[in-house]
Design a binder for these strands. Structure first.
Lengths: 340, 340
DNA sequence: TCTTTGATATGAAACGTTTCATATTTTCAG
DNA sequence: CTGAAAATATGAAACGTTTCATATCAAAGA
């Protein structure tokens, strides 16, 4: 008998029934101290290893959750996954991470696989174009939380930064520095979070009577670099640039180096999404910091409440962001620019 | 009958046996075209969803692999995971990602869980101090590949950058610029990859008759910032700094800003590990680029060969790195060459 | 015509747990 | 001491697949 020991072997060794072993291993209190010890001893002696696949089949729960994200190299999603993995582990869950590359078809296929694997729940960041069919592909019986990109008619509990307010506050800050002509560089208006950021920006600009300039610069840093490069080269360029997410920021910084633009004396730069490198750039980039930790905590709570069929509190969370002022944003000088 | 349809329901509907349905779904060629079509029709009509948990229990394979990494925020590991997830998915596997935070105990616990979940294989980056017991905790029956941190007595197939050579080449490059006094800032000598990088550095320095200065600066960017800060403030500071991984580079850049050191005129900086932001810094940082894609491909191949019990080719892969020269490394003034 | 062969299809027995109705023992009020 | 209730232990029946030995049937070889 070189095969792996099963619960049955443990039962034989401990001279108790199979059911008793199961109870002990699941911490059922209706088992006496004596038998419990015998079972633990037997487990140790046999080097027994619990088979969670068999357990999952019978109990109909896998203690597994699926995480669907566009791309793990984006620090925002990576940070989210890191935090979620910790939270899940702490509750005895294991995560299955799946990336979509912003491809709706691939997202649907991956979600299908996660369902076949009987995940207990899902935490999903919808891909471009995919938020429509999400209810169909995820299925209404599946505990699910939508994160970051929340559409108006999203049927699932959701968590996201309060994008409208965050963009509004950021824009007001730029206005308060005296900027009148401000551009918002956004990745794609198809994304709900981007729409919200645009809305917040436009509202603040209306109120501040500034000249709003919304530019759609594409989903990748490289596309953004090109688009923002031509923006920088326009004769009548804005005095401040607000980048709507971290990839766009990357493109903006790159474009700035390409064009020999000086920040902040030529253009002030404010980034949506903060991450470590922003404070190491020279000048360090001012940023709107999303509350990633809180988003992760709420996302986990919402999916866990659904899994354990508990009443769900706060179905639609909007977390407040924070403005971190560094060196890339400066008050505009006089009426016309001068480079010091 | 509101419960999910099972294979049995499909069999009833298609008027075939249970075994036949299983065969069809697994692409067994010994089933006739007529029945196959009936089965597919029935699946579609019932909206049948394959239960991979049950399949796994019986077939004793889960088509799941565990990925054990120290930290998903480190872009090196994130890139590895991204690539591995794609490779695995393409072969019908799903990944379970688990982070250790460089904690050997946590690593062991997570590995235990992955074993309980019956993963078919593991790809592991050993945590600090943990490479010793790896064989014990992973178990010798488990298909496993060790990545990035490969100890001398590592019993598993392995893939890593050729660290000795990479560090050697990088150091020779710095020497070729005329630097005599060069520091290597390394995170921890307990890490095998760091040891190798130190070895390559020292060998090149011996050959070049330079003054080698190996500094252990700690595992986090913040620790590195402090250590490198004091290095920069030493009267007799080196003219070139080689940072041994991306976190240390982060600390070095931060320290440089703290101290008002100019790169490259005061100190040349060469980074081990390349990533997007390095080319956006001013000056853009020269770097040793690890062949992440190739590492991932080999890691997947090695674990997959073990899983499918195929002969394993190239048990211990060492992948070559590439030197990317940017602006942070310059010829030393006075001594010899001038860069035009 | 009668085997033999090969191609298909079948059904029952796993896989290793959890669950639940039932059995057994213990406890304790009356 | 008795009977009921509480506490503890048991064993068989799931869970939904895959697998494998066997059955069926048509075609082919003798």
């Amino acid at each position: 008998m070189t095969a792996k020991p099963t619960m049955n072997d443990v039962a034989l060794r401990a001279d108790v029934s199979l059911g008793t072993v199961s109870k002990v291993l699941n911490g059922d209190p209706t088992v006496g101290a004596e038998l419990r010890d015998r079972v633990f001893d037997a487990c140790a002696q046999l080097d027994y290893q619990h088979n969670r696949i068999a357990a999952s089949l019978r109990s109909r729960q896998t203690r597994t959750i699926g995480i669907i994200i566009p791309d793990i190299l984006n620090t925002f999603y990576a940070a989210l996954v890191e935090k979620l993995e910790n939270l899940a582990s702490a509750s005895g869950y294991t995560v299955m991470v799946v990336t979509t590359g912003e491809d709706a078809g691939r997202a649907a296929a991956r979600i299908e696989i996660l369902k076949q694997r009987q995940v207990d729940g899902m935490i999903v960041i919808p891909s471009l174009n995919a938020s429509e069919g999400l209810e169909k592909t995820v299925g209404s019986g599946m505990p699910c939380v939508v994160v970051d990109r929340v559409s108006a008619e999203n049927p699932f509990p959701s968590v996201a930064t309060d994008n409208v307010d965050a963009a509004y506050q950021g824009t007001r800050y730029l206005l308060s520095l005296g900027h009148k002509h401000i551009a918002l560089a956004a990745n794609s208006p198809k994304l709900w979070n981007t729409q919200e950021r645009i809305a917040g920006f436009e509202q603040a600009m209306r109120e501040g009577q500034g000249r709003a300039d919304v530019r759609i610069v594409g989903m990748t840093a490289e596309e953004a670099r090109v688009s923002i490069g031509s923006l920088f080269r326009e004769a009548d360029r804005p005095t401040a640039l607000f980048t709507a997410n971290n990839l766009v920021t990357l493109g903006a910084v790159s474009a700035q180096l390409d064009c020999g633009i000086d920040i902040p004396s030529d253009v002030s730069l404010l980034a949506f999404d903060d991450f470590e490198w922003l404070r190491l750039l020279r000048p360090a980039i001012s940023a709107i910091q999303q509350p990633i930790d809180q988003i992760a905590v709420d996302a986990w709570r919402l999916v866990f409440q659904q899994i354990s069929k508990r009443p769900i509190s706060g179905q639609h969370v909007r977390a407040g962001a924070q403005l971190v002022i560094r060196q890339s944003t400066a008050a505009i000088r006089g009426t016309s620019r001068r480079v010091g």
